[in-house]
Amino acid sequence: MGCGPSKGRRQYLGNEDPVFLASQTTFSVSEVEALFELFKTISSSVIDDGLINKEEFVLALFKNRTKENLFASRIFDLFDVKHRGVIDFGDFVRSLHIFHPNTPLEDKIGFSFKLYDLDNTGFIERKGVKQMLLALLGESEMKLADEAIEMILDKTFLEADINQDGKIDMTEWQHFVSKNPSLLKIMTLPYLRDITTAFPSFVFNSEVDE
């Protein structure tokens, strides 16, 4: 529902039509407009160019532009749908849509699979999982001996890699996630349910009739 004065023309946000974006996602047009307010803040935090670069993404996540985080970097790469090193508004909305509480579980499972498919081979491979484990443990306070890491990987792949070919395919991942639903916890952002409340300034800027 448009909340502002309609001028009888469609307003484009970052060259994206909010009505079209809403039709492709779980968001309403008002919610897409609200997300544009957030996008403008993040995309202008370092360079005001209407695009989010990795530094701005990490800064928005951690309020600290120097923090190294492999997981955040991986999420950025998945948001960067066109592989240009930046996230435009369309990428931002379509990617955040995955994290909406109402988005089907299947979409969340697919995104989480890509998150762990580090080399984009179409499989979650043991070496990629170990690489993520080592990088993240190195960044955190949590310390584990290599022997313990190998044991955890053995146990994980024994359970997840049903055909024991050394890698996890999408069907095996779906099965594993269904037995370990906590893995999808990070794939839902309750904030997205109340996005128009969190960013009310769109009310004054809206020119879109829904």
Partner: peptide
């Protein structure tokens, strides 16, 4: 340690996209 590798990755990353929404609105 009774966690699988992916639980540890999620936990140790401290990853939470809600950071995008905090202090930005």
């Amino acid at each position: 340690l009774n966690m699988n590798a992916f639980d540890i990755i999620s936990l140790s990353s401290g990853f939470d996209l809600s950071g995008l929404f905090e202090e930005n609105n």
